Simulated assay, not measured.
Amino acid sequence: MNDATPDVMPDAPGTPLRFDTKIAVLLRDDLEPWQRLNAAAFLVSGLGTRLPEVIGEPYEDADGVPYLPMFRQPVLVFEGGKETLTAAHARVLSRCLPCAVFTSDLFATGNDRDNRAAVRAVPTERLDLVGLAVYGPRNGVDKALKGARMHP
């Protein structure tokens, strides 16, 4: 199956589609609610910009008003402690899965330029990760996020 072909297996019209891939967000469990929402929103935005196959078709309501397309599949949100996030990040990198990162430093910046500079200033193994988003084969993402639990 190539990247342009959706990886869904339709059973019958009207039944849920099963995806061979997974979009997942892992957030550190000690974040304030506003920090969780902010980090999750930033993290998933990175996937759609580099992986066009994750984006579905545009929406339109019954009156013909158009809306932007969104992800074509669910986004699963997980949480875990700092150690879980660090281990997941290492596994994501070792599996070469596309990912976006959000570090604690980004809560103090106010724009993309400063965000990128904050990440660039820290070596990989010393990033203070508070979140990551990952996309890839279901089993690869599941293995990378081992130890994380579904966000409540």
Rank of each mutant, 00 (worst) to 15 (best):
P13D: 14
R36F: 00
L145D: 04
P152D: 13
P98C: 04
V65Y: 06
E53F: 11
L51K: 05
F78K: 08
C99W: 00
R126L: 07
A87I: 00
P74S: 14
G64E: 09
F107W: 05
V92L: 09
P10L: 07
E53R: 12
P13W: 11
A12T: 07
H151V: 00
V141R: 02
F71M: 14
T5D: 14
S94A: 15
Q73M: 14
G140E: 08
S104F: 05
E125Q: 13
V77Q: 09
C99D: 09
D114S: 13
R95G: 06
L106R: 04
D3H: 13
C96E: 14
L31P: 07
A62R: 12
L43E: 07
L127Y: 03
M70Q: 09
V130M: 06
P98T: 07
L106C: 08
R28D: 06
R91C: 01
E60S: 14
G147R: 04
E83Y: 00
V77C: 11
T124F: 10
E57T: 12
S94C: 05
A87N: 08
L93V: 12
P16C: 04
P10V: 02
T49N: 14
P52Y: 11
G56Y: 01
L106P: 02
G48L: 03
N115I: 00
K82N: 05
D61L: 06
G147H: 03
V101T: 10
L47F: 06
E60V: 12
T124H: 11
P74L: 09
N139D: 01
L129P: 01
E125L: 04
D114N: 10
L68E: 09
G147W: 02
Q35D: 10
N111H: 12
T109I: 06
L17D: 05
R113Y: 05
D112V: 06
D7C: 07
N2S: 10
V44M: 15
E83D: 15
L85W: 04
L145I: 03
R149T: 14
L145E: 03
A148D: 05
S94H: 11
P66F: 06
L26H: 08
D11N: 06
T86W: 08
P6G: 09
D112P: 00
W34D: 13
T5V: 13
V92A: 13
